[in-house]
Simulated assay, not measured.
Amino acid sequence: MYYWNDLAEVPSDIGPTVVTIGNFDGVHLGHQHVLSRLVKAAREHDAAAVAVSFDPHPAAVHRPGNAPVMIMGPADRTEALAATGLDGLLMVHYDLELASLSAEEFVRKYLTDGLHAVAVVLGHDARFGRGNTGDLDTMRELGAALGFEVIAVDDFDALPEGPEDSRGRRCSSTWIREALAAGDVRTAARLLGRTHRMRGVVVHGAARGRELGFPTANLAPESTGLIPADGVYAGWLVGADGTRWPAAISVGSNPTFIGVSRQVEAHVIDRPAEAVEDFDLYGQCVGVEFVERLRGMVAYTGPEALIEQMRLDVARTRDVLSTESPAAG
């Protein structure tokens, strides 16, 4: 997949293309539904399949104090978009100047003049142009005037056989954020089509886990990906080379100890005894994937009670992951 940071980087002979636009935070099943239709349409038109996205998220520009936390970091989003079969991704810098473009100005500059689009694929909730005044009907009008086809894609019902209150609900980034805020990483995974992942550099912590017999890989505070609710999770630690290890993951401030800031740390389970001392991930960029929440955070009476609980957490992690595929999230 070609990646362009600016319209000026797009080759002048790029056309024809079939294009879609969106933030694609999470690249969830709803996004994948639209992108699958995009790729199919591009092949039918003998054209390149191109997605136009924005960085930063528009809400970070218009509502900087109330913008949603991104579900995934830029590297994971690009990787997930590439996996859909896209030929190109144009990441447009979002600022007030871009936001001031009318719907027609945006379409002319980016879709027709810039990308030579012969078709545009959109979901029914798509909005674009100044004040989000452009919608699917607007795009159809512009398509008729400027000579491109508009393909509408219906909403995607991710959990048709799920809980009654979820049936018929549109798959959305908002729903995924709600699930992660509740620690419901199972629902988040069903909406994403893969396990939720954080990514970051392993840094030195207070070494309490090592002292207790459960050494952990601690993610740096600036790691990317939405942090789920505090608690202990079964999941996977993914090394920089793609190696995957089963892990018990702790999220929170560890209330048994005073003055510990919120952190994400993963204890790899079932390593051979001879490999324990050689297992050094400091400074490496790793992924942490959340499969199932085992429990919330609890303050224990002392280290002995905490050690016993951690033994139970490891046993439950082993049980949960024994039925899970270690395939990449």
Results as ranks from 00 to 15, higher is better:
G193W: 03
G193Y: 04
M198K: 06
M198A: 09
M198S: 10
R199W: 10
G200Y: 01
V202A: 02
V202M: 01
H204Q: 14
G205C: 12
A207H: 14
G209H: 08
R210I: 05
R210V: 05
G213D: 08
F214Y: 15
A217Y: 03
A217I: 04
A220C: 07
P221G: 02
P221F: 00
E222M: 00
S223M: 12
T224I: 00
G225Y: 06
L226D: 03
I227P: 05
P228R: 04
P228T: 05
P228H: 06
A229R: 14
A229Q: 13
A240H: 13
D241I: 06
T243P: 00
T243D: 07
R244I: 09
R244H: 04
W245V: 06
P246W: 02
A247N: 07
A248I: 12
I249M: 07
I249K: 07
I249S: 09
V251T: 06
V251N: 05
G252F: 11
S253H: 12
P255H: 08
V260K: 11
V260L: 11
R262D: 10
R262H: 10
V264H: 08
D270T: 03
A273L: 10
E277D: 14
E277H: 13
D278W: 04
D280P: 01
G283W: 11
G287Q: 01
G287W: 01
V288D: 11
E289F: 12
F290T: 06
V291F: 09
E292K: 15
E292I: 08
R293H: 02
M297K: 02
V298H: 14
V298E: 13
T301F: 01
T301Y: 01
G302I: 07
P303Y: 00
A305L: 11
M310H: 07
R311V: 09
V314Y: 02
A315D: 15
